[in-house]
């Protein structure tokens, strides 16, 4: 599903828009990640992002399941937020684990309680927008200084949160 130049042109190497090229380019990068330098001491800067993603997923699930008067649009949007934020939490956890396999035992403390859904659809929507805005800012703040192999993930999380706000708009 990508656009290609309609003619090979004089530079056949430069068929830029083939997803396969990007995928192949990413593969050695992923392999290289295993030999990245040891992480600095202290908590992993991704931990607050993972915790926030889990909390957002729980909030969104609660909205989708139990807000009275939530229309179909809000239920669908909240379901999308829940699924994406859960995927973010898992990817962030995975990267945290990869960087520090030894401290794995202290990793995801998943149960911070089930959040109470806001009482009205309008408040639920506002709460989701607020959560996504904070999540986007938090991820965005790390993108410019993160190691390369994390910059892509953080960029995608940032872009996803912005897209989910668009769904709620």
């Amino acid at each position: 599903m990508t656009l290609e130049p309609s003619r090979p042109g004089p530079l056949p190497r430069r068929r830029f828009l083939l997803a396969g090229v990007l995928a192949m380019a990413a593969a050695p990068l992923a392999a290289a990640c295993t030999s990245t330098p040891p992480p600095p001491p202290g908590p992993d800067p991704l931990e607050p992002l993972a915790a926030r993603a889990r909390a957002d997923a729980a909030l969104a699930r609660a909205v989708a399941e139990s807000v009275p008067g939530a229309g179909q649009d809000l239920v669908q949007a909240a379901t999308a937020v829940a699924a994406s934020r859960k995927a973010h939490a898992e990817a962030l956890d995975q990267e945290i684990q990869r960087a520090r396999p030894v401290t794995g035992s202290s990793a995801p403390s998943s149960s911070s309680g089930v959040p109470t859904a806001p009482p009205t659809a309008a408040e639920a929507k506002a709460a989701l927008v607020e959560a996504l805005t904070a999540a986007e800012q938090e991820a965005r703040a790390l993108v410019t200084t993160a190691p390369r192999h994390r910059a892509g993930l953080l960029g995608s999380v940032t872009a996803s949160c912005a897209s989910l706000r668009e769904v709620l708009a």
Binding site: A87, S156, T158, A162, V167
Partner: peptide
């Protein structure tokens, strides 16, 4: 990346595609 992902969401909505978003835009 972010603005492209937001625009993609808008066009998916215009085209009544589902889902409207992907969890990792650009991945």
């Amino acid at each position: 990346l972010t603005s492209a992902a937001v625009r993609a969401t808008r066009w998916r909505r215009a085209g009544r595609q589902s889902p409207l978003t992907v969890p990792f835009p650009g991945q």
